[in-house]
């Protein structure tokens, strides 16, 4: 054996030229392949435009409007900078009461949801078969597909005198709470419950069973295991759920109109000022309150790592 060189390959016949259109497309895609930044920019441009204009732009407009005021005679917006709206908001007892009430309702709704959601999520994540888990997740999401108004009105009917709630509570000698703040909290808690269950469920799914086993193995009774291991490790997930329930409750104004009796929340003040009072700048001022509260809330919970759980 003297040589191992391969025999010269016969010249390949030239491939037929691809059609013109395909060639242009090829050129374009290989160009995009070579310029990853441009590719990323093109892909992101539409969502960025949406986020920038429709979302942040609207928020900015709201914030700017909050510093304008209306001409009391003509009802037209006067584009002059003034802090009058904020002074009214902070000095008027009515608005202060409504703000405190709104925060209180949102906090209570969050608490009720957390207490209801945790056992449910725990049972799903740790005791149900994968099949049962899928069915339960769908069952929990089903109410989200129904109209908000229908759900709120169904609570109005249930809470009415001689309604379902009355009938259920009768054996215990308790009456239906009727329409008011309790009813508002109940209805909102019902409406936002899925937003609390799903993040907690996801958080518990990520919690390895062996950690629960290890805690029991080291002598901790179930309650201790819950307090020292399960709760601290799923707390970020609970906070993640609370961001939804809290912010959705803060901005709500429909449920309180339907089941809240004469009570008002911040949303009602905004709504009335846009409509009946025709005072858009003041509505904008009131609307900044929930936004600021949420920004503060997010700043606080950021440290728990909750934002990684969304």
């Amino acid at each position: 054996m003297t040589t191992t060189t391969t025999p010269p390959t016969p010249p390949t016949p030239p491939a037929p030229a691809p059609p013109r259109r395909a060639r242009t497309l090829d050129t374009a895609s290989s160009f995009l392949h070579r310029t990853p930044r441009l590719r990323l920019g093109l892909l992101l441009s539409a969502p960025m435009l949406w986020l920038g204009l429709a979302y942040l732009g609207a928020l900015a407009a709201l914030f700017v409007t909050a510093f304008w005021h209306t001409n009391t005679f003509t009802g037209e917006i006067v584009r002059e900078w003034t802090l009058d709206n904020f002074v009214t908001l902070f000095t008027n007892d009515v608005y202060r009461t409504i703000t405190v009430r709104t925060i209180g309702i949102a906090a209570l709704v969050t608490l009720v949801d957390a207490v209801l959601a945790f056992p449910m999520a725990f049972a799903m994540a740790k005791f149900c078969s994968p099949r049962a888990q899928r069915i339960l997740v769908i069952a929990i999401m089903t109410p989200l597909w129904a109209s908000y108004l229908v759900k709120a009105y169904s609570w109005r009917i249930m809470l009415s005198g001689n309604g379902v709630v009355d009938w259920l509570l009768a054996p215990f000698g308790v009456d239906s709470p009727g329409y008011g703040l309790t009813a508002t909290v109940l209805t909102l808690a019902y409406l936002w419950l899925p937003y609390m269950i799903l993040p907690i469920y996801a958080g518990l799914e990520r919690l390895p069973d062996s950690l629960v086993d290890a805690s029991g193995d080291l002598g901790a009774p179930p309650w201790r295991t819950f307090r020292s291991v399960v709760l601290p490790l799923t707390f970020p997930a609970i906070v993640a759920g609370s961001i939804f329930t809290f912010s959705l409750s803060l901005g709500d104004y429909i449920s309180v109109r339907i089941v809240g009796g004469a009570n008002q929340m911040l949303g009602n003040v905004v709504y009335d000022n846009i409509g009946a009072a025709n005072n858009l700048p003041f509505a904008a001022t009131v609307a900044t309150v929930p936004v600021v509260i949420m920004l503060g809330y997010l700043a606080v919970v950021r440290r728990t790592g909750a934002l990684d759980n969304l």
């Binding site: 950690l211 086993d213 080291l218």
Partner: peptide
């Protein structure tokens, strides 16, 4: 008996150390 009532301890395959 439940695990917390037994005088045994376990070293787990994935160690199961409490991450927090």
């Amino acid at each position: 008996l439940a695990p917390f009532q037994r005088d045994v301890n376990t070293v787990f395959q994935d160690y199961a150390l409490f991450p927090h």
